[in-house]
Design a protein around this nucleic acid. Structure first.
Length: 823
RNA sequence: GCCCUGAUGGCGGAAUCGGUAGACGCGUUGGACUUAAAAUCCAAUUGCUUUCAGGAGCAGUGCCAGUUCAAGUCUGGCUCAGGGCACCA
C-alpha cells in the first residue's frame, strides 16, 4: 500500500468501477425488507451548490447505512427540469431551453458522480421529457374527471416580471417566490386543483406523521388555517337581500354596530344606494389597483365607504349600516364581516375613525364591568345580550349559534384558510395542460398524450407566453366532434411535476401508465425524505394532496407519501447564507479538486447536526483532510501487520478484555445508535476520530507486536473502515481492497458489537457531599451498593470534609455515584 | 399580534433515564523535528482566586424563581435571536 493518500486518483478509479458495474442498482425482487431513501430532486440550474452537497450526502450516508444493515435500498435521483430559468436563459442566449437544460443535467450528473453518490442511475427521470410529462398530463386528466381540476375566473396573483400567475403558496410577503417582484391582482380565467377538498384530511393526518418535525407540521397546520365558528344570515332593511357572514365570535352578535362587505362582494351594487354609488365605485376601483402587499399591510389605516343601506340584527331587531372596506377579504368566509368594535381590534380601529357606535356585550367579569378604551377580545361574562346575560362567553358561542339555527338564520361552520391551487402558467417551459376548447363541445380533455410542447416558438416576446407564437400548436381538431378547436396554451406549474415524481421512481420505465399500483405500494411511502425547509408548505403540502387524491382514485393504497422527513439546515459562510451576490459561495468543484469528495462529504457532516445551519469554514475542510490522511497513514504503515483473516469478529478474540477491543465495541454501538436515532453524523464522526486516536495510541505504545496484538490492531482497523464506509466511501473501498478484503466494502455487513464489551472495564465512582462533587474513585463495577458506600465514606477527602458533621442520608446510584447529605 | 425553534468556552458543537458540564474538532499558545519553512508529532487551552508547582478552592450551561439528596436536563415566569403565519372576521 502506498504511503501517501491521493484522494483524486482513488476516487476517480472507484467511481468508474461503481458506474461500470452498476454497483448501486436496485432490484424490485428481493427477500430483504425495503428502504426508500430520497433527496428532493433538484432543479438543473447549472452547477451543484453546497446545499445540494449537504442534502445528497446526508441521504447517501443513510442509504449506504441501511444497505449494510440488510435492507433492499431504493436511492434514486431525477430532475425537476421544467421552470422559468430555462426559459429566461433561452431569451438571453437565444438557446433552446431543452438544450440548456440537457447541458446542465449533464454537468450536474458529472458532479454527483464525483461526489460518489450511490444512486441507481437506471431509474433517472426528467420532468421535461415527454416520457415523464405525458404522465403528468395523464394525472391532470384524472383530476379533471374527478372534478378536482376546474377552470374559473378569479382574482389571481400576477407577477409582471415573470409574466405569469402564481399560486398563493408562491407569494411570499406579497412578492414572487422566484424573482421577488411585487405581485399584483388580476382577474383571469385559470385552472385550479381542488386542494380545499382535502383540507381536513391534510390537517388531520399531520398527527400520523410522527417522523416529521413539529416546525413543518405547525407551518402546514397554520397554512390550512382551520377555524370553528358560525355563519349568521342578515337581511337588508331596504331590499330584503340576504348577507351571510362567517364569524368565530357568534357570542358577540348583540354587539354588532355595522357590517362590512369586501369591495369585490358579489351583491355590492344591489346593496348600494344611488346617492352613494359614485363614492363606492371610486373606492372599488382604487382597491382593484392596489397590489396585494399594499392592501394587506396592517400598518395601513383602515379605509371604507358606506353603501347607504342597512341590515337588521335578527337577535335584536336593531338596524345597522352597511359599509364596504378592503379589510374584508372577498376570498375568505363569505366575503362579509359583522363588525363588533367593542370586541375586535380591527373593527374598533375602523369604528373610531368613522365615528361608528361601539356596544359592549362582554365584561371581563361581573366585578369589572365594561368601559374600556380599546377592544376587549379576552373571555368574559355576557352583558347587554338579552337572555344570554350572565353566561360565560365561551358557552354563549354555542348557545347563540343554536338560537340562530333554531331561528333559521344561522348554522355552525368550520372554515379553512387554504385556497385552491392555481396551476395555470402563461409560460412555455412546462407541461402543456391537455385541454382543447371546441366551439361546439366546450372544454374537452385531450386523451391523445403526450401533448408535446411546440418547437416553432419565438422566445423574444414580452408579456405573453411564447407558446402563443407557435403556428402549429394552437389550432387543432376537437377530439370529441372532429371540428375545429383551439388548444389550451397555458402550461402547468412545475410543482405539479414534483408532486408525484417520488412515485415514478418505483416504476420509472413504465410506458403503459404512470406507475404500477403493486410496485408503488411495495416501495412507498418514502422511508426517509431529506430536503430544505423552504418546501415546508409548497412541495410537501402539494405532494400530500396528490397522494391522497390518487389513493381516492384507486391508483395506490397509502395516504401519506413521506413517512420520515429530515429538513436539513442551510449552508452558511461567515454567518450568512451562501449567495453569488454576497460573493461568499464555495464551489464544490474546487473542493473535489483540492481535497477530494471524501473530505467534502466528511466535512459537510462533521460540524453540525443535519437539521441545524452549517457554517462553512476553510479551516474545517483542512481539518477533515488531515484526519483522512491520518487514517490513511495509520493503515498504510500497519498494512503488513494487519491480516484480514486474523481480524476476527467479536467473541473469537483471546484478549477480549483488552481496552482497545472494548473501545471498538463501544464505537460500533455509538456510531450505530447515533445514525439510527436522528442521523447525528457530527457525533458519529467524533467517534471515528476517537477510535483512530486510540489505535494510534496503541501502536505508539507497543512496537514489538505478537500475533494477538496484530489481531487486535486488525480488528480495530477493519471495524473502523467499515464504520466509515458510508461517509467516506472511496477511501474505505480502496483500503478494504488493499488489505485483501473480498468484494466491495459497500456489500459488507455492518459490524456488530457485544453489549458486554461495549463498556469500560472499571468505572469511576463519583462521591458528592450535598450534591457537590468532592472525590472520584476508580472502582470495580461488580461492587454492591453497601461496598460503594463504604468506599465513599473511607475516602480521605470525604473524611476530612465531613469531620464533625452528621450524615443525614446517603444516596447510592449503582455504578455511578454516592451522595452524602450532611448537616 | 399568534405559532414554531433555539440560547452551553474564543468558535462549531458533546452530554440515552435528572447523576463527573465542555466529548470530538477548529482556533490559539508552548514544545519536538528542520539550516529554515511547510507538513507531522507531543502538550496546554471555561473563568476567577490561591499555591509549597503537586495541586487546592470557588463560580459557571441567556435571566429570575421553584421541585429534588442532585437540574444544561423537570416546572412556572421572563429576555434575546432565528424562522413561519398574519386585516382569515
Amino acid at each position: 500500500m502506498r504511503e501517501a493518500y491521493y484522494p483524486q486518483e482513488i476516487e476517480k478509479k472507484w467511481q468508474k468501477i461503481w458506474d461500470d458495474t452498476k454497483a448501486f442498482k436496485t432490484y424490485d425482487d428481493s427477500e430483504k425488507p425495503k428502504y426508500y431513501a430520497l433527496s428532493m430532486w433538484p432543479y438543473p440550474s447549472g452547477k451543484l451548490h453546497m446545499g445540494h452537497v449537504r442534502n445528497y450526502t446526508i441521504t447517501d450516508v443513510i442509504a449506504r447505512f441501511k444497505k449494510a444493515n440488510g435492507f433492499n435500498v431504493l436511492h434514486p435521483i431525477g430532475w425537476d427540469s421544467f421552470g422559468l430559468p430555462a426559459e429566461n436563459a433561452a431569451m438571453q442566449n437565444k438557446a433552446d431551453p431543452a438544450a440548456w437544460t440537457d447541458e446542465n443535467i449533464a454537468y450536474m450528473t458529472k458532479q454527483m458522480k464525483m461526489l460518489g453518490l450511490s444512486y441507481d442511475w437506471d431509474r433517472e427521470i426528467t420532468a421535461c421529457k415527454p416520457d415523464y410529462y405525458k404522465w403528468t398530463q395523464w394525472l391532470f386528466l384524472q383530476f379533471y374527471k374527478k372534478g378536482l381540476a376546474y377552470k374559473k375566473e378569479a382574482a389571481v396573483n400576477w407577477c409582471e416580471e415573470c409574466a405569469t400567475v402564481l399560486a398563493n403558496e408562491q407569494v411570499i410577503d406579497g412578492k414572487c417566490w422566484r424573482c421577488e417582484n411585487l405581485v399584483e391582482k388580476k382577474y383571469l380565467s385559470q385552472w385550479f386543483l381542488k386542494i380545499t377538498d382535502y383540507a381536513e384530511a391534510l390537517l388531520e393526518d399531520l398527527d400520523k406523521l410522527t417522523g416529521w418535525g413539529d416546525n413543518v407540521k405547525t407551518m402546514q397546520a397554520n397554512w390550512i388555517g382551520k377555524s370553528h365558528g358560525a355563519v349568521l344570515k342578515f337581511k337588508t332593511a331596504e331590499q330584503d337581500i340576504e348577507i351571510p357572514v362567517y364569524t368565530t365570535r357568534p357570542d358577540t352578535a348583540f354587539g354588532i354596530t355595522y357590517l362590512v362587505v369586501a369591495p369585490e362582494y358579489k351583491d355590492i351594487e344591489l346593496l348600494t344606494t344611488d346617492e352613494n354609488k359614485a363614492a363606492v365605485e371610486e373606492y372599488r376601483a382604487n382597491a382593484r389597483k392596489m397590489t396585494e402587499i399594499e392592501r394587506l399591510s396592517t400598518e395601513r389605516t383602515k379605509t371604507g365607504v358606506p353603501l347607504g343601506t342597512h341590515a337588521v340584527n335578527p337577535f335584536t331587531g336593531e338596524k345597522f349600516p352597511l359599509w364596504t372596506a378592503d379589510y374584508a377579504l372577498a376570498e375568505y368566509g363569505t366575503g362579509a364581516v359583522m363588525a363588533v368594535p367593542a370586541h375586535d381590534t380591527r373593527d374598533y380601529e375602523f369604528a373610531i375613525k368613522y365615528n361608528l357606535p361601539i356596544k359592549e356585550v362582554i365584561a371581563p367579569s361581573s366585578l369589572q364591568p365594561c368601559g374600556r378604551s380599546e377592544a376587549y377580545a379576552e373571555p368574559g361574562i355576557m352583558v347587554n345580550s338579552g337572555k344570554f346575560n350572565g353566561m360565560p362567553n365561551e358557552d354563549a358561542k354555542k348557545a347563540i349559534t343554536e338560537a340562530a339555527v333554531n331561528g333559521g338564520f344561522g348554522e355552525f361552520k368550520t372554515q379553512y384558510r387554504l385556497r385552491d391551487w392555481l396551476i395555470s402558467r402563461q409560460r412555455y417551459w412546462g407541461a402543456p395542460i391537455p385541454i382543447v376548447y371546441c366551439e361546439k363541445c366546450g372544454i374537452v380533455p385531450e386523451e391523445n398524450l403526450p401533448v408535446l410542447l411546440p418547437e416553432d416558438v419565438n422566445f423574444e416576446t414580452t408579456g405573453v407566453s411564447p407558446v402563443l407564437t407557435s403556428k402549429t400548436f394552437i389550432n387543432t381538431v376537437c377530439p370529441c366532434c372532429g371540428g375545429p378547436a383551439k388548444r389550451e396554451t397555458d402550461t402547468m406549474d412545475t410543482f405539479v411535476c414534483s408532486s408525484w415524481y417520488y412515485l415514478r421512481f418505483a416504476d420509472p420505465k413504465n410506458s403503459e401508465k404512470p406507475f404500477d399500483r403493486e410496485i408503488v405500494n411495495k416501495w412507498l411511502p418514502v422511508d426517509q425524505y431529506v430536503g430544505g425547509i423552504e418546501h415546508a408548505i409548497l412541495h410537501l403540502l402539494y405532494s400530500r394532496f396528490f397522494t391522497k387524491a390518487l389513493r381516492d382514485m384507486g391508483l395506490l393504497d397509502f395516504d401519506e407519501p413521506f413517512a420520515n422527513l429530515l429538513t436539513q439546515g442551510m449552508v452558511l459562510k461567515d454567518g450568512s447564507k451562501m449567495s453569488k451576490s454576497k460573493g461568499n459561495t464555495v464551489d464544490p468543484d474546487e473542493i473535489f479538486e483540492n481535497y477530494g469528495a471524501d473530505t467534502a462529504r466528511l466535512f459537510i457532516l462533521s460540524d453540525s447536526p443535519p437539521a441545524r445551519d452549517f457554517d462553512w469554514s476553510d479551516a474545517g475542510v483542512e481539518g477533515c483532510y488531515k484526519f483522512l490522511n491520518r487514517v490513511w497513514k495509520l493503515i498504510a504503515s500497519n498494512a503488513d501487520k494487519i491480516n484480514l483473516s486474523t481480524a476476527l469478529p467479536p467473541g473469537s478474540l483471546a484478549k477480549e478484555n483488552d481496552d482497545l477491543v472494548r473501545m471498538v465495541h463501544m464505537t460500533i454501538k455509538g456510531v450505530t445508535n447515533d445514525i439510527a436515532c436522528g442521523f447525528q453524523f457530527n457525533t458519529v464522526i467524533s467517534k471515528y476520530r476517537e477510535l483512530t486516536n486510540a489505535v494510534y495510541d496503541r501502536r505508539n505504545a507497543k512496537t514489538d507486536l505478537n500475533e494477538e496484538d496484530k489481531a487486535v490492531l486488525g480488528f480495530a482497523i477493519v471495524s473502523l473502515i467499515k464504520l466509515m464506509a458510508p461517509v467516506v466511501p472511496h477511501l474505505c473501498e480502496e483500503v478494504w481492497r488493499e488489505l485483501g478484503g473480498g468484494g466491495s466494502i459497500h456489500d459488507q455487513k455492518w459490524p456488530e458489537y457485544d453489549e458486554n464489551l461495549a463498556k469500560t472495564s472499571s468505572i469511576t465512582l463519583v462521591v458528592q457531599i450535598n450534591g457537590k462533587i468532592k472525590d472520584k474513585i476508580d472502582v470495580d463495577e461488580a461492587l454492591t451498593e453497601e461496598e460503594l458506600k463504604q468506599i465513599a465514606l473511607n475516602s480521605p477527602k470525604i473524611k476530612e470534609q465531613t469531620a464533625g458533621m452528621e450524615a443525614v442520608k446517603i444516596i447510592v446510584v449503582p455504578k455511578k455515584l454516592v451522595n452524602i447529605v450532611v448537616k
